[in-house]
């Protein structure tokens, strides 16, 4: 598994969101073009259910990654000695810590974005 301090972590959460978004739009478009479910089936049909499952799987994966990074932040806080110097530069984290801090927030945002993107699947009929 990719180290939490790897620079790719800065964007990986949103890369996953972007791939999910493409899969969501392309999946819906292709399904509607070739295998459209009947309009009467409402929002609960195989297209919406499959895309909802994808949404939940991606959200959980992103949250898992965020939790992994968050665990490291907590460990770092416990082990870091208190700094008497209150200068701004003294509070700047090291490069790996910085990457982990930002990556955790990016994973949380990506998870939120995935969930919000998928929410219309609960309400709307897919192919009209």
């Amino acid at each position: 598994m990719l180290s939490p301090f790897h620079p790719l972590q800065l964007t990986l959460g949103l890369v996953i969101w972007a791939l999910y978004f493409v899969a969501l739009y392309a999946g819906l478009s292709i399904s509607c073009q070739h295998f459209a479910p009947p309009e009467q089936s409402g929002a609960f049909n195989w297209v919406n259910i499959a895309l909802l499952l994808l949404t939940f799987a991606v959200t959980l994966g992103l949250l898992f990654q965020a939790r992994r990074g968050w665990h490291i932040i907590k460990l770092t806080k416990k082990t870091r000695p208190a700094t008497p110097d209150h200068k701004q530069s003294a509070s700047v984290p090291s490069t790996p810590q910085f990457i982990n801090y930002v990556a955790v927030s990016v994973y949380v945002v990506a998870a939120m974005a995935t969930l919000i993107n998928g929410l219309p699947l609960v309400l709307l009929v897919p192919c009209i």
């Binding site: 978004f21 739009y25 819906l28 219309p120 709307l124 009929v125 897919p126 009209i128």
Partner: peptide
Amino acid sequence: IPHLAQAFFSAA
């Protein structure tokens, strides 16, 4: 474009 697809982009 189908309403559901529009909703994806509306949310984003």
